[in-house]
């Protein structure tokens, strides 16, 4: 077995629990699977010798408790979840190096809080990534250069508006509905301007960044890990978001085809 370095052993068990729950919080808010959150918290506590810590995690809550009657319970309610694979990777590194962690309790907490509250990336960068992804997808389906440009514009615009509106915290269903409305508006406009554009290629390319691929993939991985409740929650979230996208697109296209 690996030997634990003195730093983690010097922390009190409450402090280790604090750090572990904060790490789990960051993982859950960045869109990690349920078993990764539970595994990280249990493993970080086990390094300190706390082997009876039990974790229950669903997409909206983390409950950490001791199996003994005098143990304490921590609970965290996650309201807003995004996707940030970079943060997942950072926390993963932390939990791998936890047994030889060189920092004290205070600086670790500060480090993690910085990660949790670090500024989101500029909206234009995210929108540009979404636009390039959409455009590349339009070409994969057999689109031409005009389709590429139109899908780029549609993916860019829809994501930009969504990011700008994110401060008002709209519900995710209406968020994707709005994305569907904007991208079909841009696509219809592009087809009007240039008749070599194919509406189908542009729209199918542009919806790609808004399809809930992450929710679906994670939901299925949850099912396989035996976390049925989280699996159900995530898969139904995916279905709901696809429905929202379809409603938004249908609203514009039905007017267009009338």
């Amino acid at each position: 077995m690996k030997t634990t370095c003195a730093n983690v052993m010097q922390m009190t068990s409450e402090q280790v629990l604090d750090i572990a729950v904060l790490a789990g919080k960051i993982l859950l808010c960045s869109g990690a699977e349920t078993y990764r959150v539970e595994d990280t918290i249990t493993r970080m506590c086990a390094v300190r010798g706390m082997n009876s810590v039990t974790v229950f995690c669903t997409p909206s809550v983390i409950i950490v408790s001791d199996e003994f009657a005098n143990g304490c319970t921590l609970m965290y309610r996650a309201t807003r979840r995004g996707t940030d694979l970079g943060l997942i990777s950072e926390i993963n590194n932390l939990s791998f190096n936890w047994y030889q962690w060189p920092y004290s309790y205070e600086s670790t907490m500060r480090l993690l809080k910085e990660k949790l509250e670090r500024p989101t990336r500029p909206p234009w960068l995210v929108a540009l990534a979404s636009g390039v992804g959409a455009a590349a997808f339009a070409v994969m389906l057999g689109g031409n250069t005009y389709d590429f440009c139109a899908a780029l514009a549609a993916g860019f615009m829809a994501m930009l508006v969504l990011r700008k509106l994110a401060v008002f915290r709209p519900s995710s269903f209406w968020e994707t509905t709005l994305a569907g409305i904007i991208l079909s508006l841009v696509a219809v406009a592009a087809v009007q301007i240039n008749h070599e554009c194919n509406l189908e290629n542009v729209i199918v390319g542009a919806i790609m960044p808004f399809l809930p691929g992450v929710a679906l993939t994670n939901g299925l991985r949850d099912y396989m890990a035996g976390d049925l409740m989280s699996g159900n929650a995530r898969v139904s979230e995916a279905v709901l978001l696809v429905g929202g996208l379809a409603v938004g697109m249908a609203a514009i296209l039905s007017v267009w085809y009338m």
Partner: peptide
């Protein structure tokens, strides 16, 4: 592009 969208390192 989707990797950048999801903030992959």
């Amino acid at each position: 592009a989707f990797g950048v969208l999801f903030n992959t390192p």
